[in-house]
């Protein structure tokens, strides 16, 4: 690096830091540290992949939705997720990667997606519980991202969060209908909550002491709260909602702590979490195989679209 380069590098660095310190937005044409760019690409891609993989567990019930109204709601929801994937890939593209490249990384397991989608959906109650707990946890994670320092990501998140909170309400409304229905329906809801509760808590990531990237992400205003802060908030919000539903959250240590003005709760099984994020969850192989197959089956279609477009240009 020459002396001039070095001076300009420092000037860029100072300008970037000043923008961050003033809690303002970094835009695609602004200079940014390589590590900031890489962190964002990784996080936005992971988020986009989660939307796309998340279509599978919910899409699993579209054909069997037990009323036409529920079918329409679920189909619209899964369609929204494809839309979210599109905005997020577009946000990632402003950082100099393209969708095709990111898709290749997803199907070759070089980039991750949310651990939660490696669990199977086994009953129709899972559709409601995913809306309530999984979308609820996602909202806790994502609402602060609407103020993230990277402009395109923050703007994509505003739209996504609106739709996610709408999905969460739909999920909760399904559960309310079910717990007020037959005994079998109510039991189905409880059984589903039993399966999804701990995986939902794991969505916030490892405990703060085991989350090495958190401090840097917070310094860059990408992340605004620690994993444990968000997890606590999620539990505190969810407990009264569970009471309204009349379901029990499967944690014997869950109780109100008057002194902390917050709920105490048990520790998720971190060995299960570790297995799921390293590829050994209940449905990892199935999810990736499905995505890979769909992508490969579509290759001839994408090639045809390209060939047709090329002919129009040359004609």
């Amino acid at each position: 690096m020459t002396a001039t380069d070095e001076r300009s590098h420092h000037a860029h660095q100072d300008e970037f830091q000043a923008t961050i310190d003033a809690d303002q937005r970094i835009e695609p044409r602004d200079w940014m540290p390589e590590a900031y760019r890489k962190t964002l690409i990784r996080q936005i891609a992971q988020h986009a992949h989660s939307e796309i993989i998340g279509m599978q567990p919910e899409g699993n019930w579209i054909s069997r939705a037990p009323s036409l109204r529920r079918k329409a709601i679920l189909l619209a929801k899964v369609q929204d997720e494809a839309g979210h994937g599109m905005y997020l890939y577009a946000a990632a593209e402003t950082l100099g990667v393209d969708r095709e490249e990111l898709t290749e990384k997803l199907i070759s397991a070089k980039q991750k997606y949310s651990s939660i989608f490696n669990y199977p959906t086994l009953t129709y109650a899972d559709v409601g519980v995913i809306g309530w707990l999984v979308d609820g946890a996602a909202i806790c994670n994502q609402v602060p991202l609407c103020r993230c320092s990277y402009g395109p990501y923050a703007r994509a998140m505003v739209r996504i969060c609106k739709e996610e909170s709408f999905h969460q309400r739909q999920g909760y409304e399904l559960l309310l209908a079910m717990v007020n229905g037959t005994r079998e329906q109510k039991a189905m809801v409880q059984e589903s909550v039993n399966r999804w509760w701990w995986p939902s808590l794991m969505m916030f990531g490892p405990a703060d002491g085991d989350s090495p990237n958190t401090q840097q992400s917070m310094a860059w205003n990408i992340k605004r709260h620690t994993n444990d802060e968000l997890r606590q908030r999620f539990v505190d919000m969810t407990v009264p909602q569970a009471e309204v539903l009349g379901v029990t959250l499967p944690d014997p240590d869950l109780r109100w702590n008057e002194e902390r003005q917050a709920h105490d709760f048990g520790e998720p099984d971190w060995s299960e979490f570790k297995a799921v994020i390293t590829g050994a969850g209940p449905a990892n192989a199935q999810r990736l195989e499905h995505r890979r197959r769909a992508h490969e089956n579509g290759a001839w279609v994408r090639e045809a679209a390209q060939a047709y477009a090329d002919k129009q240009v040359s004609a």
């Binding site: 796309i52 279509m55 899409g59 619209a76 369609q79 494809a82 769909a294 279609v301």
Partner: peptide, 24 residues
């Protein structure tokens, strides 16, 4: 709606699901 999560591209996911929704 069998095409959900099986379409060749995300734009086609959205379009086919939307068509299914209109008909529903």
């Amino acid at each position: 709606s069998e095409w959900v999560a099986n379409a060749p591209e995300l734009e086609e996911e959205v379009a086919l699901a939307n068509t299914a929704l209109d008909l529903l």
